[in-house]
């Protein structure tokens, strides 16, 4: 049903919540086990429901979910760029976690733009990926401690 699929343009594994029937095959398959399942209906009592993001549906029970890299922000930026007839400025798009991270530990960007900060970091000798040997071609790079600081931005 293409509830989960790999979006080759954005290099993202997409989860489409309303298509998911909850077989949990993707969760078994995922070598990183980053997928989480909604075992019960979510419960947000009165004031807490105010924190919910109006751009994102609340997942009901029986649905698999994972980090979408704030796909709603990426999609909106793309749609706005297309409406204005301009190329997408990838540096303007940030997932919420990157935006709020006070120490700048997280960097998000387009790996296909060689000069983007994220592509530069991915090329640095400090960069490594997890479980590459499984052929997953991961797009997430971690940075280990290193001698040289690679400046960006």
């Amino acid at each position: 049903m293409y509830a989960t699929y790999h979006d080759t343009n954005n290099r993202l594994n997409i989860q489409v919540y309303n298509r998911c029937a909850g077989i949990r095959y993707c969760g078994v398959n995922c070598p990183y086990k980053v997928r989480h399942f909604n075992w019960f209906d979510p419960d947000f009592p009165e004031p807490l429901n105010e924190q919910l993001n109006p751009d994102v549906t609340v997942r009901r029970r029986g649905i698999m979910e994972k980090c979408s890299f704030c796909i709603q922000r990426i999609r909106r930026a793309r749609a706005e760029a297309r409406a204005e007839g301009m190329a997408l400025d990838t540096s303007a798009v940030q997932p919420a976690c990157v935006q709020t991270c006070p120490t700048g530990a997280l960097v998000f960007g387009n790996l296909d733009e060689p000069e983007s900060p994220v592509a530069q970091l991915a090329r640095s000798p400090r960069a490594y990926v997890l479980l590459e040997e499984l052929g997953t071609e991961p797009s997430i790079f971690y940075l280990k401690r290193g001698e040289s600081y690679v400046p960006y931005g």
Binding site: G22, K33, R35, H36, F37, W39, F40, R61
Partner: peptide
């Protein structure tokens, strides 16, 4: 909900 089973991640 499926949570009444003993299942959990992973």
């Amino acid at each position: 909900g499926t949570g009444v089973t003993g299942l959990s991640r992973p």
